[in-house]
Amino acid sequence: MTLPPELSPEHWITHVFSAKAARQGGVIRRNLRDIERYVGRSAFEDELKRRGYHAVENAGQLIIFCNQEPIRLIL
């Protein structure tokens, strides 16, 4: 689904976290460019903190763990 550019930050966040994987406590991936364009990185990080979620960044992508479980990086 393509989102309109005039989508409000609140609606964009609602859209992101209403994805099936997010609702089920899974993992979602978003492009940092989209996060910055629709809501701003700082506001998005505030929302992650509010929800108790974790995320990792790699190659312009943010991998978001939609649960409060600990993360262990495996090298």
Rank of each mutant, 00 (worst) to 15 (best):
Phe65Asp: 02
Ile13His: 00
Phe44Ala: 02
Pro5Asp: 11
Leu73Asp: 07
Pro4Lys: 14
Gly40His: 03
Ala19His: 15
Val39Gln: 09
Leu48Gly: 01
Tyr38Asn: 04
Ser18Glu: 13
Ile71Ala: 00
Pro5His: 14
Arg29Glu: 12
Glu57Gly: 05
Leu73Gln: 09
Leu7Pro: 07
Arg33Lys: 10
Arg37Ser: 11
Ala59Ser: 15
Val27Ser: 07
Phe17Val: 01
Val56Trp: 05
Thr2Cys: 09
Val39Trp: 14
Ala19Thr: 13
Val39Thr: 15
His54Gln: 13
Pro4Arg: 10
Gln24Cys: 08
Ala22Lys: 01
Val56Pro: 03
Trp12Cys: 08
Phe65Gly: 01
Ile35Arg: 00
Arg29Ala: 10
Leu48Val: 01
Phe17Ala: 02
Glu57Gln: 13
Ile64Ala: 05
Val56Phe: 06
Ile63Val: 13
Asn67Ile: 02
Asp34Ser: 12
Ile74Met: 06
His54Met: 06
Ile35Phe: 05
Arg41Thr: 09
Leu32Thr: 06
Gln24Met: 11
Asn58Ser: 14
Arg23Tyr: 08
Ser8Phe: 02
Gly40Leu: 10
Asn58Glu: 15
Trp12Gly: 08
Ala43Gly: 05
Gln61Lys: 12
Arg51Cys: 01
Asn58Ile: 14
Pro9Gln: 06
Gly52Leu: 08
Val16Lys: 04
Ile71His: 01
Gln61Ala: 11
Leu62Trp: 03
Arg51Gly: 00
Gln61Trp: 15
Gly52Glu: 04
Leu75Tyr: 13
Ile74Phe: 12
Trp12His: 10
Gly26Thr: 03
Asn31Lys: 13
Pro70Ile: 09
Gly40Arg: 02
Ser8Asp: 05
Ile64Met: 07
Gly40Val: 01
Arg72Thr: 14
His11Ala: 11
Asn31His: 08
Arg72Ile: 13
Leu3Lys: 04
Phe44Pro: 00
Glu47Tyr: 02
Phe65Ala: 00
Arg29Asn: 04
Ala43Leu: 14
Pro5Gln: 13
Ala55Ile: 02
Ile35Ala: 01
Phe65Arg: 01
Arg23Pro: 05
Cys66Lys: 02
Arg30Val: 04
Asp46Ile: 07
Gly25Phe: 03
Gly40Tyr: 01
Gly52Trp: 07
